[in-house]
Structures are given as C-alpha cells and as structure tokens.
Design a protein around this nucleic acid. Sequence first.
DNA 1: CCTACCGATCGGTAGG
DNA 2: CCTACCGATCGGTAGG
Lengths: 200, 200
Amino acid sequence: MPRRSAAAVARTRAHVTGAAVARASVDGLDGLTIGGLAGAVEMRKSSVFSLFGSREELQLATFEAAIAQFVEEVWEPVADREPGRERLLALCERWLDYHEREVMPGGCFLTTATVEFDARPGPLRDAVAATWGRWLRLIERDVATAVERGELPADTDPAQTAFHLNGLASMASCQFQLTRDPAVFARAGSAMRSVLAPAG
Amino acid sequence: MPRRSAAAVARTRAHVTGAAVARASVDGLDGLTIGGLAGAVEMRKSSVFSLFGSREELQLATFEAAIAQFVEEVWEPVADREPGRERLLALCERWLDYHEREVMPGGCFLTTATVEFDARPGPLRDAVAATWGRWLRLIERDVATAVERGELPADTDPAQTAFHLNGLASMASCQFQLTRDPAVFARAGSAMRSVLAPAG
DNA sequence: CCTACCGATCGGTAGG
DNA sequence: CCTACCGATCGGTAGG
C-alpha cells in the first residue's frame, strides 16, 4: 500500500513537469537541475528526484510535455480544417502567433533542444530527431495534398517546403528573443506566404 | 618581471581558446567548464582560470574566436568580389559548404549561442545580439546594392531577405546534425537561390 | 514527500 | 603554469 495513490503521484509529477518546462525554456534542458527545480516547486531535491528516477528521465518528460503543449496550441486548432494549402496557411499563422505570444518564455523549445543535443548521441537526441520526423511529415503531407489539388505548383517538393517553413518559424522565434522586435514575425509570415504562393 | 612573456601567455590563451571552441561547439557555451577544458589541454584548472579571469570571460573569448573563424572561412573568400547578387550567391554557397564540411563539429555556433543566451540578459547575450546585427547588416547591404543594380526585384526588402537566408542556413545546419542527411544542403541552396531569384 | 548523507565537480582564491 | 585549498552544488542513495 503506497502512502500516496498513483493518481496523486501523477498529479505531482505533472505539476513539477510544468515548472520544468518553464525553466528549461529559458535555461535549456541542459541547464535544468533537480535541485533548482525542487526550489522552484518548494519540494526537497530527493522528492523531485524520486518522481523521475534520473535527471535524464526528467529531461525527457520535460521535452515531451513542451512538445505536447506546442501541438495543442498550434496544431490542434487547425487539425479539423480541410487538408491542403488553406490549412498550411492557417498553421503558419498559429505557429508565428504562438511564438509572438511567448507561450514559452525562452523561445522555441524544439529549436533549443535540437541545438543542445544534435551532436550528443543518447535518448534526448533520439527524442528530438523523432519529433522532427513527425512534425516534418505532418507538413509534407499537407503540401503533397495541396499539390495534388493544384493549389501549389506541380514541381513543389514537399520535403523542401516543410524544411523551408521550419527555417522561417525557428529563425523568427530566435530573432524575436534577441531583438524583441515583433517585425520579425511579419517578415516570417510574408516569407511563408511566398513559399506557399498558389499555383498558376 | 613576469615569469612568462605577454606573447607566451597570448599564445597559450589562443591555444586554450581553440580547444574551447571545439568543446563548446558540441556541448554549448553553457556546457563549457574550466575543469573539463583544463583536462582537454592537459593543464591545471587554476592555470586555465588565470588565463581568462572568469568563466564568463572564457565564454566570451570562445564565442569571439568561433565567430572570427566563421568570418574567415565564409566571408573573407568572397569579400573581394563585386558587391551585389553574385556575391550573395557565392556567400550562400560558402556558407552551406562551411556547414557541410563540419568545420564546427557541433553545428552552427551562432545558432547554438543564440538559443542558449537569447532569454538570459548579460554580456553573452549582448555579444550574440551584436554579432547578429553586424552579420545581418552585411547581407542587407549587398541585397540593397543588388536591388539598386536591378539584379533583384525593386520591391525586395533587404531586412526580410537577410532574415530569410539566415533561417535557411541555420535550419540546414541543425537538420544535418540531427539526420546526417546532406540533402538538407541541396534543399537550403535551392531555397536560397529562389529567394535571390533575379529581377525580371 | 521527508531527513541525512555520499563522492564528484563546480567557479574561484591564495600564494608561489 | 603549479599546489593546495574554499564553500556551494551536482546527481544520486538509503531508509522511513
């Protein structure tokens, strides 16, 4: 008989993970420490540790939570639209809006995690690569649909278009964090619309 | 009378800074530790410390050295060309080639430093922002020249074009680190050429 | 979720 | 460029 129910532990873990997302957004997943996080949620270090079992598990849980939040805020609102060019345009708008509202205080979480772990093999790198694969494929599918429907030029390369849109969104978030100038979102949006310029 | 000449100290410092660039390229400037670096160059921790005076100074010196190397490898070779569209195309080619050759083992140093410090005020963030300002202005000037010469469409926005090219280069480096697929450089190059499509 | 503890490592100092 | 050291913090363990 555990002293706390599994549901209570899950609630605590979710609460601590939420605080971890906010901290890691600013300091990076690599800057996340069990002791620092414990202080922020007013718990003892060993209590936070026991919720995750290792620092790496804490980092993985934090990464997954941040991505889930991104999907919920950016993809979910447009998921039920008709696939194709219109949904891509709506997605890009939500995407830039998400960064402009600074839902993540430290900027794009996926970009941060990517530059932190892309050169260091391990479970974090694998998780980042898997997330990129899923995200790029999501966009590529809509680009392919748009091409089939004649909404985008027939010679459009879905992989290239997905790559291109990501570059613009990621750069917009980075530059905004650095300059605090919201003009970068207008620039990125304009560039995205030209990337998605209709066929014909 | 110092036991070692100023020139000898400068040589040692340059050597240690070079090792710091290689390490920080993989682990980030935030992952750079005086002790770890001392081990890599086979010196004592206090010796490395005394070369820089503080960890922050070590980070700043490492950042400046990495940027100097980038400028030397990417900008210098095209600096004496005629300003305008041709130089921009040559620059983009060198830029992607620099990332493909993996001169920096951990990918784009400026991107890494940006996501690490963009949300944390201090001298590092200031150095990153200043470097971005100089780099963007360099590109914007050539874009403006190309527009004046009629090599690019008259309605081209230099700031937007510079922003756009940076997004593509940065994303190419990140994706290559993650997937090891050199196709991203072909995608980025193709996108860059379409961004710099000639007027008319 | 807590107290009490471990060895290792952190940035930095004193002094030669 | 070295030895010898400082207090603080790291991830993690034992046991309740």
